[in-house]
Simulated assay, not measured.
Amino acid sequence: MITLYTFASGFGQFSYSPFCTKAGWLLKLSNVPWQRQDTTDPRKMPLGKLPAIGLADGTIIPDSDNIRAYLEKTGHDFDAGLSPRDRAVSRAFIRMAEEHIYFHQMQDRWGDDANWAVIRQEYFGFLPALIRGMVTRKLRKDVLGMVHKMGLGRMTVEQRLARVEPDFVAIAAQLNERAFLFGDTPTAADASVGAILGGVMAAPVPTPLSRRVAQDAVLSAYVKRCAAAMD
Rank of each mutant, 00 (worst) to 15 (best):
L4S: 09
S9D: 15
G10W: 00
F14A: 15
S15P: 10
P18F: 05
P18H: 08
P18N: 10
C20Q: 00
T21G: 12
W25M: 14
L27Q: 12
L27Y: 10
N31L: 08
V32L: 14
V32M: 03
P33L: 09
R36H: 06
D41G: 07
I53A: 12
I53M: 14
L55M: 13
G58D: 13
I61Q: 02
P62C: 03
S64P: 05
S64H: 08
D65K: 10
N66F: 10
N66V: 13
I67Q: 08
I67H: 09
R68E: 14
H76P: 06
F78C: 08
F78Q: 09
A80N: 13
S83L: 03
S83V: 00
P84C: 06
R87K: 15
A88Y: 07
S90R: 04
A92F: 06
I94T: 10
M96G: 06
H100A: 07
I101H: 05
Q107N: 09
G111V: 03
D113F: 06
A114L: 13
N115F: 00
W116E: 00
A117V: 05
R120A: 13
Q121K: 09
Q121T: 12
L127F: 03
L127A: 07
P128Q: 05
P128A: 05
G133F: 01
K138H: 12
L144M: 14
H148Q: 13
R154H: 05
M155F: 02
E158M: 05
R163N: 02
V164W: 01
E165K: 09
E165Y: 02
A172W: 03
L175P: 07
E177Q: 15
F180G: 04
D184S: 14
A191E: 05
G194C: 08
A195L: 06
L197F: 02
V200A: 07
M201D: 02
M201P: 07
A202G: 10
A203P: 06
A203H: 05
P206F: 02
L209P: 10
S210Y: 00
A217M: 05
A217C: 01
L219Q: 04
S220K: 11
A221P: 03
K224F: 00
K224S: 15
M230W: 07
